[in-house]
């Protein structure tokens, strides 16, 4: 128990050491989550765009809903 307390106190400099490691954790989490969320958002956008095209194509009576790239 005392050993654990000593570990976290870092010789009385725990605030500095652990806040630095917290920023590190924050940067890791940012680089994991931000691109993931952005890609999901892009996937939703692509799906919405595609559905809009398909309904448009149905209305105009086109055979394929896909617009050439």
């Amino acid at each position: 128990m005392e050993a654990i307390q000593e570990f976290f106190s870092m010789g009385g400099r725990g605030v500095y050491v652990w806040s630095a490691y917290a920023v590190f954790a924050g940067v890791i989490v940012f680089n994991v989550l931000a691109p993931l969320l952005r890609r999901r958002q892009a996937l939703r956008l692509v799906a919405r765009q595609q559905r809009r095209r398909e309904t448009l194509a149905e209305r105009t009576g086109a055979a394929s809903g896909r617009v050439p790239d």
């Binding site: 680089n31 691109p35 996937l43 939703r44 692509v46 896909r66 790239d69």
Partner: peptide
């Protein structure tokens, strides 16, 4: 690579492969 995939998908949102990835 993770950021790259997200940005690539955004840029290529009108392409066929993007639609395939989005499952439509």
């Amino acid at each position: 690579l993770s950021w790259g995939r997200a940005l690539m998908l955004e840029r290529e949102r009108s392409s066929r492969w993007a639609a395939r990835e989005a499952g439509v």
